[in-house]
Design a protein around this nucleic acid. Structure first.
Lengths: 148, 148
DNA sequence: TATTGTTATACTCTATAACTATA
DNA sequence: TATAGTTATAGAGTATAACAATA
């Protein structure tokens, strides 16, 4: 049984369907990932953010630029180091993050409609063990991360 | 429990690790997918291939060009319709397909090292049910397919 | 001299559209 | 007129490298 292939196949499907559900919010999956990270760690620097997500600094700049233009994120001057910014969600950003959460729940319910509650738990536990064994960071999508 | 996110996360990891294992073979995941499809359906036309994989005809041309240059695939003239070709694996292409199979097995063993045999079966069965419910075609990676 | 963030550029993958030749 | 395959072009997403300001 090609379980590894099934994983990649169903995982890609999950990602694609989630991306579709973000379209009405005007967001991409990477943007949702940044909002999520900033919701969990308000005030972190761009450097800390790109390190956490495993992306290149230049990409962080571009993405934060866009999220700032959308008024979802703001760069505040750092108090102790004038080179860096403290990144924060705006009120609008927080509302977007909540909307992402609702959409994610709907997405999961639709994706796992073929499984009952107990089976979903089992699936989650098995996946979590694989994720832990692979050293995956909770909440950080590998599609986000640079090679290596 | 964010099972849908875990699925996307672990699935992307699976795809990335498999891609790494293809590097020594000089192949990309899409190329491996084509070799696999041609192994299962020798002699099909480019049209049938791109339809099966859900890619654009122009992409099919480019990819078959490359695989032909690598001497893994050959275009044979179709007997009954001079517009189309019959696609076949060469002897070298068949050996490559076998190597892909070995690499896939090693990949799966490494990826699922945290699970015992029974758990792997359970995971596979749960994933298969999700895949069926989502209407995924066996052996066709969604990353391959055009939107829709 | 190292670090934060930025800019400018290039690369890869894929989509779109116009085209040729057969049917 | 429709279909198989091709060519040419464009776009999205991301990586790479050089740079300015601050530490």
């Amino acid at each position: 049984l090609p379980v590894a292939f099934l994983l990649a196949q169903v995982g890609a499907q999950a990602a694609a369907r989630f991306a579709e559900r973000l379209v009405p919010l005007g967001l991409s999956p990477p943007q949702a990932g940044i909002l999520r990270a900033l919701g969990a760690q308000p005030g972190i620097s761009q450097q800390a953010l790109v390190d956490h997500l495993g992306i290149f600094p230049s990409r962080g700049v571009t993405m934060i630029d866009e999220l700032e233009r959308l008024e979802l994120v703001e760069r505040r001057d750092s108090l102790d180091d004038r080179r860096s910014y403290a990144l924060h969600l705006t009120a609008k950003g927080n509302r977007a993050l909540e909307a992402i959460g609702r959409v994610a729940q709907e997405h999961q319910d639709a994706l796992l409609a073929a499984l009952n509650k107990k089976e979903r738990e089992t699936l989650g536990q098995l996946l979590q063990r694989v994720a832990d064994h692979e050293g995956l960071r909770p909440g950080v999508h590998p599609g986000f991360r640079r090679k290596g």
